[in-house]
Simulated assay, not measured.
Amino acid sequence: MPTRSDRLAQRLALAVPALLLGGAYLGEYGFGLYPCEMCWWQRYPHFAAVGLALLSTVAAPKRMWIALAGFAILVSGGIGAFHAGVEYGWWEGLTACSSLSSGGGDPLEAIMNAPLVRCDEVQWSFFGISLAGWNALISTATALAILRLLGLRSET
């Protein structure tokens, strides 16, 4: 029988990555904050975490699926920390940048007119912290909270 802390961990494992992904897509499609390659890398573990958290609602052992979701969120936080360090110039990043191309029409024209998004430039920040930095902070804190909640076994 799941404890109260298990249920809270499960809710965090589902809600936080879903909200972070929702925010990323809102920024992308609502405000034109197109993701660079490392931004995409941060999204993939969140997709996995949502899937694992959903799986924990129907498959045993629930705590294992929740823990795996927590670790996936932690991976996204680690990638976000690395990306934030690249943005702030603390270390060298990867040389790859990404651009977006729209489907249809002339493929070469679409590629040539697509915006180039660099991984080492901050597109938006809040209180001096970039989106990658916020992802690092929120994801790491959430993952640690999930793992801590799973480590606590209440006998009530």
Results as ranks from 00 to 15, higher is better:
144 L>Y: 02
46 H>I: 02
144 L>V: 14
98 S>M: 13
111 I>K: 07
91 W>I: 08
32 G>T: 04
71 F>A: 07
109 E>W: 11
5 S>D: 08
57 T>G: 09
5 S>N: 08
49 A>K: 01
102 S>Q: 11
144 L>M: 15
113 N>E: 12
150 L>C: 01
108 L>R: 10
12 L>N: 00
102 S>A: 15
32 G>R: 10
81 A>N: 02
34 Y>N: 13
148 R>C: 15
11 R>A: 15
87 E>V: 10
88 Y>F: 07
60 A>S: 12
71 F>V: 15
74 L>M: 04
66 I>Y: 05
69 A>C: 01
25 Y>E: 14
82 F>E: 02
23 G>N: 07
137 L>Y: 11
47 F>S: 03
47 F>G: 09
26 L>H: 09
16 V>H: 02
17 P>Q: 00
38 M>K: 07
150 L>S: 02
37 E>N: 14
76 S>I: 03
156 T>I: 07
21 L>M: 08
71 F>Y: 14
88 Y>D: 11
119 C>D: 15
101 S>I: 13
104 G>K: 10
71 F>W: 13
147 L>Q: 05
4 R>W: 06
98 S>R: 13
134 W>P: 00
9 A>T: 04
147 L>F: 05
76 S>P: 02
134 W>V: 04
127 F>W: 11
84 A>E: 13
153 R>W: 07
127 F>E: 03
72 A>L: 04
86 V>T: 01
143 A>Y: 12
11 R>G: 15
22 G>N: 05
93 G>H: 09
102 S>T: 06
41 W>K: 09
148 R>K: 11
78 G>R: 00
72 A>G: 02
79 I>F: 08
100 L>C: 09
153 R>Y: 10
72 A>E: 06
1 M>R: 06
68 L>C: 10
26 L>V: 15
104 G>Q: 10
28 E>H: 06
55 L>K: 04
81 A>P: 01
56 S>T: 00
122 V>M: 01
23 G>F: 10
96 A>W: 13
106 D>W: 11
76 S>L: 01
28 E>I: 12
120 D>K: 05
147 L>N: 01
118 R>N: 04
155 E>F: 14
154 S>T: 11
133 G>K: 01
156 T>N: 06
40 W>T: 07
33 L>Y: 14
24 A>Y: 12
2 P>T: 14
75 V>H: 04
143 A>I: 01
97 C>L: 03
150 L>F: 01
41 W>V: 14
111 I>P: 03
125 S>E: 15
53 A>I: 08
99 S>F: 13
129 I>E: 06
105 G>M: 06
96 A>L: 09
140 T>R: 02
111 I>D: 13
64 M>L: 15
73 I>T: 00
146 I>F: 03
57 T>M: 14
85 G>N: 01
